[in-house]
Design a protein around this nucleic acid. Structure first.
Length: 430
RNA sequence: GGAGAGGUGGCUGAGUGGUCGAAAGCGGCGGUUUGCUAAACCGUUAAGGGUGUCACAGCCCUUCGGGGGUUCGAAUCCCCCCCUCUCCGCCA
């Protein structure tokens, strides 16, 4: 969430940002209401505090008073004050929770250079890498390849778990593990600390990161009779790792590479063009996560670093891709700026299409404010909220699509990308 | 899963109804000493919020795992939850 003081002091800019971000008009109405609520809250707070002050005085005086009669009087006053303050405190709590819930719906501000626009078509293509391959034989998509080479078993996945689940088999397993190794080793060499995170997290951690575990549109599987949910990404667990902590500035930036399973209900995604591994309920992901000091310069620089690593990984794999600077209207709530990499997928659409394989977001202090992750700037008083960034190193399901489809051979088998051969242990699979 | 012991500031750790936002140590910061470093010594050092100020200062409120409760008054007593440790059980 944003800082309420910032919101109220920059109301016009925040409103314009909400329009750029394509959020519901309800949020705009809330913004006007919030100024009123905050005034009310402050007035009430001052009232409550002055009564509490008198309460404290009375309580202290009572302890010191030796005279029984005077003591009885003080106790009586204390009782009166307690009753007096109770109602105001309740109203104060109501106001605070209303403000907090309204504030939670206001999206992060947007980087000045991010393209403004309502829909994903208005995102800006920054560059392309590689040339989509032309096939001198009928190219297959990954579903056909997976079936023909006995690599991916959607039928068993549906039987055992349901639609959207799958079994990886044989060389697909080696390829999957090879990609994880490749990604983690690449990141470790760049100073990222490797982490395997839990696949479940408490709901308040999910909420802090910006996911709503409940409601009809939720992407999140939650566990009945608990406050736990299956994570949709290791961003949740890595971000939550330092919740409620005050870090020393000297430890920043913190850079993590996390491996986890990811679970998504894909509610509301039914009917959207997707087949095979592209939109599934469970996949494995190697995720980058970083905390920096609280300046846009620091987090923007880290953001570029994360993007560069993503590009390095996909160019290393030899998969053609393009880089998008995501437009304001297509940013999620916490993101200040977001870049996607879309890899060329020959089996997608009529004659191949780019499909999203990574996404990296600079969330500035939007998540850390809610998760209460601060640092102590050296030589300064007080604390600041860290900036948090995340980015996909490899999402296994989609990376498999890109590799199978781009590296297929006329004999129906699939070449293993050069960089993965040491991990897979062979040059060709299938 | 059962039994017991715990959770206190950046860290370790004292504190069992008022004089406690909280001893002591460590760490941090400032200083003295010093050729430099280290050591020693002196001082200082929680967070959030309100008010106030050009900005400081000051004054006030809240916070001792989280949430409720008892009380004029709670770190301290009671209830629920979370977590940690020890022992037992179970188990990969």
């Amino acid at each position: 969430m944003l800082d309420l003081k910032y919101v109220l002091a920059n109301l016009d800019a925040v409103k314009q940002n909400c329009r750029d971000r394509n959020v519901s008009t309800e949020v705009l109405d809330d913004l006007d209401r919030m100024a009123v609520l905050e005034d009310e809250r402050k007035t009430l707070l001052q009232q409550v505090e002055s009564v509490r002050r008198r309460q404290n005085e009375v309580a202290q005086a009572t302890g010191k008073e030796k005279d029984a009669e005077k003591r009885t009087e003080l106790v009586a006053e204390g009782k009166r004050l307690k009753a007096e303050v109770a109602e105001s405190e309740d109203r104060l709590k109501v106001l605070e929770s209303e403000l907090k819930s309204k504030l939670g719906r206001v999206p992060n501000m947007t980087h000045a250079d991010a393209p403004r626009g309502a829909t994903e078509d208005e995102s800006r293509e920054l560059r392309k890498w590689g040339t989509p391959r032309t096939f001198d034989f009928p190219a297959k998509d990954h579903v056909e390849l997976g079936k023909a080479l006995n690599l991916i078993d959607f039928e068993s996945g549906a039987k055992v778990t349901g639609n959207g689940f799958y079994f990886l088999k044989n060389d697909a397993v080696l390829l999957d593990l090879a990609l994880q190794q490749f990604a983690v080793k690449t990141l470790v060499a760049k100073g990222f600390q490797p982490i395997i995170t839990p696949d479940l997290a408490r709901n308040h951690i999910l909420e802090g990161i910006g996911y709503n575990p409940r409601g009809p549109e939720t992407q999140i599987y939650s566990l009945e009779d608990s406050d736990l949910s299956l994570i949709g990404t290791a961003e949740i667990t890595l971000g939550g790792m330092h919740a409620d902590e005050i870090l020393e500035e000297s430890v920043l930036p913190l850079k993590y590479v996390g491996v986890s399973h990811c679970f998504r209900t894909e509610a509301g995604a039914a009917g959207r063009a997707s087949k095979g591994l592209y939109r599934v309920h469970q996949f494995t992901k190697v995720e980058m996560f970083a905390f920096t000091v609280a300046t846009v310069e620091a987090s923007s620089a880290m953001h570029q670093e994360l993007l560069a690593i993503e590009e390095e990984i996909f160019s290393g794999l030899g998969v053609p891709f393009r880089v998008l600077d995501i437009c304001s209207g297509d940013l999620g709530g916490p993101a200040y700026r977001k870049y996607d990499i879309e890899a060329w997928m020959p089996g997608r659409g009529e004659n191949g299409e780019y499909g999203e394989v990574t996404s990296t977001s600079d969330c500035t202090d939007y998540q850390s404010r809610r998760l209460n992750i601060r640092y102590r700037p050296t030589g300064q008083k007080g604390t600041k909220f860290v900036h948090a960034l995340n980015g996909t190193a490899i999402a296994l399901s989609r990376a498999l699509i890109a590799i199978l489809e781009n590296y297929q051979r006329s004999d129906g088998r699939v070449d293993v990308p050069e960089v993965l051969r040491p991990y897979v242990g062979k040059d060709v699979i299938g």
